[in-house]
Design a binder for these strands. Structure first.
Lengths: 194, 194
DNA sequence: GCTAAAAGTCAACAAATGTTGACAAATGGA
DNA sequence: TCCATTTGTCAACATTTGTTGACTTTTAGC
């Protein structure tokens, strides 16, 4: 395998990193179809052939670029009445953090027209949001509750970061937390959620 | 203008309609980039050149295909305590109606990577959702409230119809109305929304 | 039935795309 | 210094794409 021996930061693993960085930027801004290998190469000041040499194909490059780890807080240890606010607060942090925010943008930007991205995005919510909800609510309801939470979080991200709907862009963090927090709180542990 | 004189259903305006129907179907399923003119032509059992003849370009074809009218009910005349449920109920109807649902799918599917679609989608919420909210809430807050509502509706549509997140797909209409209704109600007229 | 306009067919274009292979330059250990 | 491996460059490929123009077939009024 060509995995890191964790020894040499040698020479042009840097090239590899530059390509990946450029790819993440462009995939996040333009989506899978909109970002060509030539665009990525130009952005990394490198030859298009190098992109293929380092990553075997565009699909594989995209797979390497579309990495996300929400690092959601364990809801078990937080105040049960603050689940909603904690969730939305953490979510905003993720989107603002260049590393994770870019990953989410990459997935969301391409998920509507790229089955791989769609599957990856479903995975994120199935493996990172749902188990988290299962820890605080009846596991039998966890799927539905996680689905509802996902719909609100994903819609907010769409409106604010991709679609850039002006009134949603204008919201401050505090306003979002105050407004969306209660929604998530109810979806997570509300008794009226069937 | 080549507008209908509302006289002749003559001959191959039908071709035009077939092309448009095929285009709407494919744009809704695969997005702007994913649906080629040749695909559309094949689906309409017609020559690709005909697509260009009838609609001058792919952009123009897309513009003709991406038509949406939410036909939202006037919130003024409905029970003020039922705004949320009415909204979400109407929204579900739209997405199930082949005509309007397809239009929304076209826009949403392409909005993340096509600026025209994004602008059109922003228009839908600015011109159809916002004024409706302004009729029942302080007009000064209408933008923010409409934005929040949009985020939830759009996220639900993403999860249920495009991303097909299993737990969200599994929800019945009644469950959605019961769960999402209160959220929209609070976004529309809730006193704790800043 | 004749003819002009409409509707449809066909082949080809230019551009963009993912990908490849042959070749040159640089690097680093012996 | 020499040589083998790595790193980079260049030109080209095959395919797909939107689009066009020349041409043929069909239609419809006289």
């Amino acid at each position: 395998m060509t995995e890191n021996q964790s020894k040499k930061p040698s020479k042009s693993d840097r090239t590899r990193a530059q390509i990946l960085e450029a790819a993440r930027l462009l995939f996040a801004e333009r989506g899978y179809d909109g970002a060509s290998i030539r665009d990525v190469a130009a952005h990394a000041s490198i030859d298009p052939a190098m992109v293929i040499r380092y990553f075997r194909s565009k699909d594989e490059l995209f797979a390497r670029a579309a990495v996300v780890d929400l690092k959601l807080p364990a809801l078990r240890v937080i105040d049960r009445t603050d689940i909603g606010k904690t969730l939305i607060r953490r979510f905003l942090e993720i989107w603002e953090d260049p590393a994770n925010g870019t990953g989410m943008a990459i997935l969301l930007r391409s998920a509507t027209s790229n089955e791989f991205a769609a599957e990856k995005l479903r995975d994120v919510f199935a493996n990172q949001v749902r188990p988290l909800v299962a820890a605080v609510a009846d596991p039998a309801d966890a799927g539905r509750r996680a689905g509802l939470i996902s719909s609100q979080l994903l819609g907010l991200a769409m409106c604010r970061y991709l679609l850039r709907l002006p009134p949603v862009v204008a919201l401050s963090h505090d306003e979002i937390i105050q407004n969306v927090g209660p929604t998530l709180q109810r979806y997570a542990v509300g008794e009226d959620v069937s």
